[in-house]
Amino acid sequence: MFTGIIESLGTVTNLEKDQNNLHISVKSNITDELKIDQSVAHNGVCLTVVAIDNKEYTVTAIKETLDKTNLNTLKVDDTINLERAMKLGDRLDGHIVQGHVDQTGICTNIENEDGSWVFTFEYDASLNNMTIEKGSITINGTSLTVISSKKNRFSVAIIPYTYEHTNFKTFKKGTKVNLEFDVLGKYVARLMELR
């Protein structure tokens, strides 16, 4: 479980295909605190640390993960959001995040609001995910509040701190992002569907 509060940024240092898998090596300032078998969210995707070498560590993404996330678009030197799993008893500053990406979305607009930014994203509504205004959404692992919600589109406001300490500062129109919709909302939607 995660909170969606990005702990650190990482830099992709190597990408190695191995059949249908992708081994992703990352350089980060939290590497020396990691251990093998530990879960770390990478752009919101929970992956297991399989190797550590000085300031770099490696995780493996399988075909299922690559098909459903933006990890298949990674390039060496890309910046990714990182968060270690939360500790029992810690504050939950964001919201409950599983590290299981529901689908990807595309950044369609970025508005500079004179001190903050409004980012708009579109997603495939046929997958039955949804947002609500003032509800939670996770974008590339970052816990955010929806400020505008339509059937297949939503917007979030980004403050300067979030902009500087996440990979939002690298987004452009057309950037593909990982979306994890609010887990409580997903359960409510599923219960309504079964009625």
Rank of each mutant, 00 (worst) to 15 (best):
M1D: 08
M1E: 09
F2P: 00
T3P: 00
T3S: 11
E7D: 10
E7A: 05
S8P: 08
L9P: 08
L9E: 07
L9Q: 10
G10L: 01
T11K: 15
V12K: 08
V12W: 11
N14R: 14
E16G: 02
N21C: 09
H23Y: 14
S25C: 00
S25W: 01
S25G: 05
V26T: 00
V26K: 05
V26M: 04
N29G: 10
I30C: 01
I30D: 09
T31L: 05
T31W: 05
V40R: 03
V40E: 10
N43Q: 13
V45I: 12
C46P: 07
T48V: 06
V49R: 10
V49L: 04
V50D: 08
I52M: 12
I52S: 05
E56H: 10
V59C: 07
T60N: 11
K63R: 09
K63Y: 05
T65M: 01
D67G: 03
D67N: 09
T69R: 10
N72R: 11
L74G: 01
T79Y: 11
N81A: 03
N81F: 05
E83T: 03
M86S: 06
G89L: 06
D93N: 15
D93W: 09
G94S: 06
G94D: 08
I96M: 12
V97A: 10
V97S: 04
Q98M: 13
H100M: 00
H100A: 01
V101W: 02
G105N: 07
I106D: 13
C107S: 09
C107D: 04
C107I: 15
I110S: 08
I110L: 09
E111W: 00
N112D: 15
N112Y: 07
N112F: 02
E113I: 13
G115A: 07
G115M: 11
F119V: 14
T120Y: 14
Y123K: 07
S126G: 05
L127R: 13
L127V: 10
M130R: 15
K134L: 04
G135D: 03
T138E: 06
I139V: 14
I139S: 05
I139M: 09
I139N: 13
N140S: 11
G141N: 02
L144R: 11
S148F: 10
S148H: 12
K151T: 15
K151H: 13
N152L: 06
F154N: 05
S155F: 07
S155D: 01
V156W: 00
I158Y: 00
I159K: 02
Y161E: 13
Y161M: 12
Y161A: 12
T162S: 11
Y163W: 15
Y163D: 02
E164S: 08
E164V: 04
H165G: 01
T166H: 01
T175Y: 13
N178D: 08
N178S: 10
E180W: 00
F181N: 06
V183M: 15
L184W: 09
L184I: 15
G185C: 09
K186S: 06
A189L: 09
R190E: 11
E193Q: 14
E193R: 11
L194T: 14
